[in-house]
Amino acid sequence: MHPHAGVAIVAILAMIVLTLGYVMACAVWPFTACRRCGGAGKHRSPSGRAFRYCRRCKGTGARLRTGRKVYNAVRRLYREGR
Rank of each mutant, 00 (worst) to 15 (best):
F51M: 09
R44I: 00
G6K: 11
R35D: 07
R49S: 09
R65T: 08
A62D: 03
R49Y: 02
C57P: 02
R82P: 07
F51D: 05
C26Q: 05
T66C: 00
V74H: 14
R35K: 06
V10C: 03
R63Q: 12
C37E: 02
R52A: 12
R52N: 07
L77E: 06
W29Q: 07
T60V: 05
G39F: 02
A40S: 13
I12D: 01
S45C: 03
V17I: 11
H4M: 13
W29H: 09
R79Y: 05
L18V: 01
V17C: 04
P3M: 14
M15P: 02
V17P: 01
I12R: 10
R49V: 08
M24D: 04
T32C: 02
H2V: 15
C26T: 06
A5Q: 13
V74E: 15
Y71N: 06
C57R: 00
M24Q: 11
R44Q: 10
G21R: 06
A62Q: 14
F31E: 14
H4N: 09
M15L: 11
G41L: 00
K58N: 12
V17D: 07
A27E: 06
S47N: 14
G61A: 02
A14N: 12
E80Y: 05
R52L: 01
V28H: 01
P3H: 15
G41R: 03
L77A: 14
P30G: 00
K58F: 11
R76H: 04
A14F: 03
E80W: 09
K58P: 01
R49G: 07
R44W: 03
R36M: 11
G6D: 15
G61D: 06
T19W: 09
G38Q: 03
S47F: 00
S47H: 04
C57G: 04
V17F: 02
G81H: 13
P3G: 05
R36N: 11
K69W: 08
G39E: 02
V28W: 04
G41D: 09
A8D: 13
M1R: 10
C57H: 00
L77M: 09
L20K: 13
T32Q: 14
A14D: 08
C37T: 10
Y53F: 08
A25S: 07
C54S: 00
M15W: 08
I9V: 14
V70S: 01
R76Y: 10
S47R: 14
E80V: 15
A73V: 14
N72Q: 12
I12L: 15
G39Q: 03
Y71W: 11
A33S: 08
L20V: 05
A14L: 11
A25N: 12
